[in-house]
Simulated scan of single mutants.
Amino acid sequence: MGTASIRDVAERARVSVGTVSNVLNRPERVTPSTVERVHAAIAELGFVRNDAARQLRAGRSSTVGLVVLDVRNPFFTELARGAEDAAAEHGLAVILGNSDENPDRESAYLDLFDEQRVRGVLISPLGDVSERLARLRSRGTPAVVVDRSVDGSGLSSVSVDDVAGGELAVRHLIEQGRRRIAVVVGRPGIRQVADRLAGARRAAAAVSDAVIEVVEADGLTVIDGRRTGEQLLSRSVDARPDAVFAVNDLLAVGVLQALVMTGSVSVPGEIALVGYDDIDFAAAAVVPLTSVRQPSHLIGATALRMLLEESDDPELAPRTVVFQPELVVRASSGA
């Protein structure tokens, strides 16, 4: 049996195709008895309306595309939840794409969202995508950059001041008496990572005997952090840092695992540790993790609402929203 069409529903309910369309889209224009008859016909025939075709005719989609750097990172999961919650308030759905820090995958998702004519695109980009997003906007698809600022690009953005966040983390370690501070970075080409490192250096520059050592991990995962922690452990005691600032909590948790598993290093006694993002299980780590908190849910929700405002008013000037980070102090830093 073929798929039932709107014409089949009209014939079964003994009404016009226009009446069926009104029942689906503007039921207040139809008498209750007719609405009931049409819905009965829909149920009998198993009719499913072609929402994509309806949206194409209307010129407005009920979906928003979201591209994040790494869906495994709870920061991006919470950001996506914020966008979803705000979208639900407007009867919209969010389609999530994970670039996995791969520019080809990022580009493929942007192609897909362009083809699907989504209402708009939210993206945490790998690099500079301003030209690509400008082309989307020229075809009527607005875009908002999340988790980093893009001043001068003609695009709206919602982010956190990551330079201030890195400075908060290292200043805190210095206030705890630490002077040999390793900053564990992964993917240094990513703007957020570079900004957090810049903030760390700025904090250390204000104290004459504070030294920053950049330790580059292979990536930004727990496993990458564990490997980095093992490298630090392999050094002689005198060559080890007395503090570590990891540019995200996944790296910090991995470093913590490496340091405490052997029992040969005390955290925070010998090495104090600070992460970034304040993901849910930072507080539940074997040594509760001091971290720089970002309002991830608020970032996602704010970006979604800005996107809809730009969808409703294409002449709206680009806006930049920058939230301030907050240091959440726990046992890992010795405070």
Rank of each mutant, 00 (worst) to 15 (best):
H90T: 00
L92G: 05
A93R: 05
A93G: 04
V94E: 03
I95H: 01
I95T: 13
L96R: 08
L96W: 00
N98H: 05
S99F: 07
E101H: 09
D104R: 15
R105V: 09
E106D: 02
E106P: 10
A108I: 01
Y109D: 02
L112E: 02
F113C: 12
F113I: 11
F113P: 00
F113R: 09
E115T: 14
Q116Y: 06
Q116V: 06
R117G: 12
R117L: 13
V118F: 05
R119L: 15
R119E: 14
V121Y: 06
L122Q: 04
S124T: 15
P125M: 08
P125K: 05
L126K: 06
D128H: 11
D128T: 11
S130W: 13
E131T: 11
R132P: 15
R132I: 00
R132G: 03
L133V: 02
A134I: 08
R135T: 07
L136Q: 11
R137I: 04
S138W: 05
S138Y: 07
P142D: 08
A143T: 04
A143V: 06
V144F: 07
V146Y: 15
D147S: 13
R148A: 09
R148P: 00
D151Q: 11
D151R: 14
S153M: 07
G154R: 13
G154I: 12
S156A: 12
S156H: 10
